[in-house]
């Protein structure tokens, strides 16, 4: 971080998250619980940001890698299987499986151009759901794999129903992921990605082999998404049903990246706060508030704020694209410390 003393929004946001973790209980905010979802989706968004934001490959099947991660983690830890790894070995396994899956999908398909690649990733997302659903001898089909044992952390012990330790664990992993993404972005690897995004032919004339570069981006993104999936499964002690990792989740990840600002790590953090914050925090709270007052009739379809979720998402996306297409916190120059 040669560039320097100026504090980037990422660190401000992560600092804010630390502060929230510290103050949540004394102030009785009750935000730590839903914030865990924000952190997991920020990880997923970071993964997609590597693929779509840095490398410019439209990816519509990120949820598939999340599912692969969740299932790898679950199979690795759950005691209905013989493997029964600890939390950390299973996490490593999850990340490796995710990267390999990304690699295997990317190898034959990364020669395709833009929209064709998008549909292939979309198809992959559907296939993975089907596989998880149909191979029930291994994946337990629609009931999902559960219960997963809680993570055991050195010095803390078993993570139970208390939210605090979970929050710190997720936040710590997110900080690591942010650092990894920044390191990559400001290196030879990341420059190759950005160059391929800006102009693939020119990049190739500069000696960058585009397909291997894209392959690394794909695998990195998949590994981060798998990590998000593993954490998600661990949080709910279950993979949930395969349908949970559907196209909507992939699109949610895309929204996070785009609302935040394509190719901007700061943006991913803001984007996940905005999108998941609205979906998981604001809407449920609004619903509870309205119902407590008896304002709305929950049997009417219009009465439940949850039914408005996609309308809100859709309108947010459309308005964003009209008003601020570069996102809330667009990527900034000076990745290599040009500012000095």
């Amino acid at each position: 971080m040669i560039r320097g003393r100026s504090l980037s929004p990422s660190w401000i946001l992560l600092g804010g998250a630390v502060l929230l973790g510290l103050l949540d209980r004394p102030l009785g905010l009750g935000l730590v619980d839903p914030m865990r979802g924000v952190l997991v989706f920020a990880l997923l968004g970071l993964g997609l940001n590597v693929v779509t934001g840095f490398t410019g490959l439209l990816h519509l099947g990120m949820a598939a890698f999340m599912a692969i991660g969740a299932y790898a983690f679950a199979i690795g830890t759950c005691d209905i299987y013989p493997f029964q790894l600890g939390f950390w070995p299973a996490m490593v396994l999850t990340v490796v499986v995710g990267a390999v899956a990304g690699f295997l999908l990317g190898a034959p398909t990364l020669g395709l151009r833009g929209d064709y690649l998008a549909i292939v990733t979309l198809g992959f997302g559907e296939i993975v759901q089907d596989v998880m659903k149909n191979m029930d001898a291994i994946t337990k089909g629609t009931q999902g794999i559960n219960p997963l044992p809680p993570p055991v952390l050195p010095g803390v012990g078993e993570l139970g129903s208390e939210e605090g330790p979970w929050y710190w664990l997720f936040l710590g992993l997110l900080v690591l992921a942010v650092m990894a993404c920044r390191n990559l972005e400001r290196s030879r690897t990341g420059r190759a990605w950005l160059a391929v995004r800006e102009d693939e032919l020119a990049a190739s004339c500069m000696g960058i082999a585009p397909i291997p570069a894209k392959m690394y981006a794909f695998a990195t993104g998949a590994a981060l998404a798998a990590m998000a999936g593993g954490l998600w499964a661990s949080l709910y002690a279950s993979t949930g049903e395969p349908g949970n990792y559907d196209f909507q989740v992939s699109i949610l990840a895309l929204c996070i990246v785009i609302v935040g600002g394509m190719g901007s790590i700061d943006g991913v953090l803001v984007g996940s706060l905005a999108m998941i914050g609205v979906a998981n925090i604001a809407l449920p709270k609004l619903a509870a508030w309205l119902q407590a007052r008896g304002v709305v009739d929950p049997s009417n379809v219009l009465g439940s704020p949850n039914n408005w979720k996609y309308l809100v998402f859709g309108v947010v996306l459309m308005v964003m694209m009209r008003v601020r297409p570069e996102g809330l916190l667009p990527a900034r120059l000076g990745r290599v410390g040009g500012g000095r």
Binding site: R191, A192, A195, E198, M206, I208, L333, V336
Partner: peptide, 20 residues
């Protein structure tokens, strides 16, 4: 065909890719 969103320095560094 420069990499427009990258800085001037980064553009040169991209050109150096194969030598790094």
């Amino acid at each position: 065909r420069l990499f427009g969103e990258l800085s001037v320095l980064e553009n040169v560094l991209v050109g150096m890719h194969a030598r790094l």
